[in-house]
């Protein structure tokens, strides 16, 4: 079937030149590719259904393999003061992510979705949530730059920085891959590849769930009240 179709159709459609020998032989790989692509789409669909299916009792985030305690570290906040992660967040629900202010894509979408959800939940609930952005670009993200950036989303969001060694240690303790600085472009600008999930530490200082990039406002408004009420994700 394939053979006869290619024999009749090929000469008519390739007006800009004779069909190349590779074209004929690449039909099979293309078909195989389509089938593989179809399977990938189905698999991804199942994954999404798994994470977002969210019937009653389900969670939009990813349940962690084991509980993780909030990193034991002292960083510096946007007022220039030391910020002891464990002491400052004791008894609070804390959402922590890594990022940098020159990030035009992942970071602002994460922060905007969370900020919109907190607005929707209202002050009485939102006040029980501490949102922390730890910069992975301490060189460019000065306290002032971070404060201005975070205020765009929520004046209560906490921005933390430290030495490259401190920031690497916090990423390790949070069980995320260490951020990697990309190559500089001709003007000296650069991107930083970093973990994009948001980790939720509950009032006992333990994280049991993390929310991937792409978590929607509606996912947060459904899950956050349950987390704030002390429900244990499982």
């Amino acid at each position: 079937m394939l053979e006869s179709m290619s024999a009749t159709d090929a000469p008519e459609r390739s007006e800009s030149g004779p069909p190349s020998p590779e074209s004929e032989s690449s039909v099979v790989p293309v078909v195989v590719g389509l089938v593989v692509a179809g399977l990938v789409v189905v698999a991804l669909g199942m994954l999404v259904a798994g994470s977002r299916g969210a019937g009653p009792g389900e969670w939009a985030g990813t349940i962690l393999g084991s509980e993780q305690r909030i990193p034991d570290a002292v960083l510096t906040d946007t007022a220039g003061r030391p910020f002891d992660l464990r002491a400052e967040t004791a008894g609070q629900t804390t959402i922590m992510m890594f990022g940098f202010t020159n990030c035009a894509d992942v970071c602002p979408i994460n922060l905007a979705s969370l900020s919109a959800a907190l607005d929707e939940l209202g002050d009485s609930r939102a006040s029980g949530v501490r949102v922390i952005l730890v910069t992975v670009d301490p060189e460019r993200d000065t306290a002032e730059v971070m404060r201005r950036y975070l205020d765009r989303f929520d004046v209560d969001f906490v921005g933390l920085s430290g030495t490259p060694e401190q920031i690497a240690a916090v990423q390790e303790a949070a069980n995320v891959p260490e951020a990697q600085r990309g190559e500089s472009d001709p003007d000296g600008g650069y991107q930083v590849g970093h973990a994009s999930q948001l980790i939720v530490y509950q009032t006992d200082g333990l994280a049991r769930i993390a929310y991937p990039f792409g978590t929607r406002q509606a996912d947060w408004t459904r899950d956050l009240p349950r987390l704030l009420d002390g429900e244990i994700p499982a």
């Binding site: 394939l2 459609r13 800009s16 004929e24 039909v27 035009a104 979408i109």
Partner: peptide, 29 residues
């Protein structure tokens, strides 16, 4: 699928002119 694959192969050989369309252009704030 096979027809689509064939059409793909036939219409975009190395010499063929690109036929490009841009859709759903959007940006964040």
């Amino acid at each position: 699928l096979a027809a689509a694959a064939l059409w793909t192969v036939v219409s975009n050989g190395p010499g063929a002119a690109p036929e490009i369309r841009v859709d759903r252009a959007r940006s964040g704030e």
